[in-house]
Design a protein around this nucleic acid. Structure first.
Lengths: 339, 339
DNA sequence: TTGAAAGCGCTAACAT
DNA sequence: ATGTTAGCGCTTTCAA
């Protein structure tokens, strides 16, 4: 049988109240009594039951984190940011890998609420669950923060990357270097890709560059190792065209890597004959040769800020819905050069 | 105020027991009554408190997972394996990132025990905590499984990679291809590196190849993006020697990538003039050109098996300490060739 | 400085 | 098929 506070109290010859006070160190206890209690705790190897405590205090010192997939290179860093920020305050993370499924996401949230977590963070949530009002409803029930994802007119707390600015900056960097024939490489469907494509047309227009539909290329699997091969093929064909594009803006670093390989296969020199720019600044962007110029999302900070916001929410420091928009940063490495 | 089972009972005009029965669906309830209860639950948006349930049932449907660092490319896949296996049974993962610190590891375990998790899995734990008997003690208190790490004569449950066999297979693959001047590239300190170095000497001896000390190269930061640059430098110098090594066995894929870059910088063709073999089969091994031949650790399966073992432990299906040793597999790609 | 007792929200005997 | 009641292990008034 598991040792309880009562066993300890009996052993030490005090009441359970006193034992509780020793454990929590929240009320005066005579030094001698404390010593006796501590000895009993050690003797029995007593481990307080935090379920019982949570039941009373209505606080579990745990928070739920939803991720589409923990094996995606993007998310572990965000989780780490959350973890580091929360750990200092004694919180533990319940990790929920939704596999990007709408239903799983909802089920996990329900599960977390039953577990009475003190808050929930959802990273890159399914657009459907945002638009349907599901997350708006959750926001009314529990401290809740969304990282990235669709957010137009949504009454939730967000920590966002400024994907718009990031995209603009990257494109104008290319344009400033004289590039006019720029290809946008994107994935199949996601709010983020749509946004970038919109911005792509806007920026080109603004600079009086004609943007043709066939400059936008889209691949199926957008965010995994397969993306590299798919991108390689698509860009390989594209680079055979004449006139040849002089720059490629890839919606993430996998795609950029694929584009790089396509160029190398064709003997096209990067960056001399072709500039490539990625997005996300995941670890592989530092691994290719040349290293990829890319847009840094500051994933770690994203997590940190979300965790901090959750704390504010829990302490009712926030009255309204808040959106924090985080600056992106163009990381200039070796895959871009002037015409 | 939070809704409780009592509010629901009152609303539905039944006892709390009946509500409990509807929620858990574990005793017969008249169809009409059930309907009334369900309506009340919906009306109040009632979410059962799993802390209260856990307190009674002495079961939380949660397990703790310790990782040295979730941003290390190796661990997310293991975690995913655990998660997938446990999710089916309704378990949730408490993720604990120890940053590879001995004390943090112990503190997390204590924390998890207070939370009354149903079991704990520790991935690549600190050798010190194994040798000190800390984990042996834990094993007596709660279902507990270690993934990898030191295990000689330790009374704990293990799921292990057969690093010994993996190393032998890799080295003999090189030797069979005629290589005699082989370099071992390893990290600073870790049980795993020591083991591989031991095996290295053994295998070379067995094949009557003289193994000199200066064929073993060691770098500080062994398992991150920095490893690449460090390995590049070290191997760059080594490859300038004469006679030049014809093959490199790297203790992980970061190191192998670094070695590959060193060769490329010197204009040495891989695999024609130099064979390189990695270890782990993390995602970057598929990204380099040529793709790396490497030893697959089957990280996903490692996680799955640990989760399964935990279940057996919880159901007392296991009487003794068990060690599962998982086969590694040599993944032949494009970085090795005969002399 | 310490203790007695109520109760957190639920499940599980036991009754009916 | 449903209800009554006794806890699960702890914290927190309230009293001494």
């Amino acid at each position: 049988m598991k040792i309880t506070i009562e066993d300890v109290a009996r052993e030490a010859g005090v009441s359970i109240t006193t034992v509780s006070r020793v454990i929590n160190n929240n009320y005066p206890v005579k030094e001698e009594t404390r010593k006796r209690v501590e000895e009993a705790i050690l003797k029995f190897n007593f481990t307080p039951n935090s379920l019982a405590r949570g039941l009373i205090q209505k606080k579990t010192y745990s928070i739920g984190v939803l991720v589409p997939s923990i094996t995606n290179l993007f998310f572990p860093t965000v989780v780490k940011g959350i973890d580091r920020s929360l750990k200092e305050r004694g919180y533990t993370v319940l990790l929920c890998d939704t596999e990007g499924e709408v239903q799983a996401e909802k089920a996990y949230v329900q599960n977390l609420m039953e577990r009475r977590v003190d808050g929930i963070i959802s990273i890159d949530p399914q657009t459907e669950n945002i638009k349907s009002g599901f997350y708006e409803a959750i926001t009314k029930q529990i401290p809740f923060v969304l990282i990235n994802g669709y957010h137009r007119g949504i009454r939730c707390n967000f920590v966002l990357n400024d994907e718009e600015m990031g995209t603009i900056e990257a494109l104008e960097y290319l344009i400033d270097m004289g590039h006019r024939n720029i290809v946008l490489l994107r994935g199949d469907h996601s709010y983020s890709y749509d946004l970038k494509e919109e911005v792509f047309y806007d920026v080109l227009n603004k600079h009086n560059i004609l943007a043709r539909k066939d400059q936008v290329l889209s691949i199926k699997a957008g965010n995994s190792i397969q993306t590299v091969a798919l991108s390689t093929e698509l860009i390989y064909e594209k680079l055979k065209e004449s006139p040849r594009p002089t720059a490629i803006f890839a919606c993430n670093d996998w795609m950029a890597t694929g584009a790089l390989y396509a160029a190398q296969r064709l003997g096209i020199k990067v960056p001399e004959q072709l500039s490539i720019i990625g997005y996300d600044n995941i670890i592989i962007s530092q691994l290719s040769q040349p290293k990829l110029t890319t847009v840094d999302q500051n994933m770690y900070k994203l997590g940190q800020l979300a965790a901090d916001m959750l704390q504010d929410l829990a302490q009712k420091k926030m009255k309204n819905y808040k959106k924090i928009i985080l600056d992106t940063k163009l990381v200039k490495r070796d895959s871009c050069s002037p015409m």
